[in-house]
Computed example of a mutant assay.
Amino acid sequence: MNTIQMRSAPMPDCGTVLPADAAHTLIPEGLRDRPALSLKELLRVIPVGRSKAYKLMKEDPTFPKGVPLYDGENSPKFYWTHEAIAWLQGRAAKIGANRGGL
């Protein structure tokens, strides 16, 4: 198994439409009950690379917003788990609507 397969959550077949609660099942078991995630953990929930995540942060206004841990320009951020789940569900609904589903 390569590194990408180990870090990424299994993704559904792109041709299938996800039910509204399916995004929750894609979250790794150890992260489901956590209220907040680090960037590294967020990338396990939303299985994209770091550079793609930064691009989404700039371009997609619905992408989960990071909350700084302390005041300062270089403060690490945390991300709310429920926002990550909502973003995944929104993406699933958007893709489903574009394909004639949902």
Rank of each mutant, 00 (worst) to 15 (best):
P19Y: 12
R32Y: 08
G49Q: 07
I46T: 05
N98Y: 06
K55H: 06
N98G: 13
R44N: 03
V17S: 05
A97P: 08
A86S: 12
P61T: 01
H24C: 00
P61Y: 06
S8G: 12
G49K: 14
R50K: 03
A93C: 03
K94C: 11
K55D: 04
D71C: 01
W87R: 05
R91A: 13
L26E: 03
G49S: 10
I27V: 12
F63D: 01
M6S: 08
S38A: 04
M11F: 14
G100S: 10
I46W: 03
L39H: 02
E41L: 01
G66R: 02
A84Q: 00
P76M: 03
A9H: 04
D33N: 14
G30R: 05
A84W: 00
T25N: 15
D21M: 15
G96N: 03
T25W: 03
L26F: 02
I4Q: 07
N98C: 08
Y79W: 02
S38D: 00
A36S: 05
R44P: 10
T81Q: 00
N74H: 13
K58H: 13
T16A: 15
I27L: 01
Y54P: 07
P10E: 04
P47I: 04
L56T: 00
P28A: 14
Q5N: 10
V67S: 15
E41Y: 00
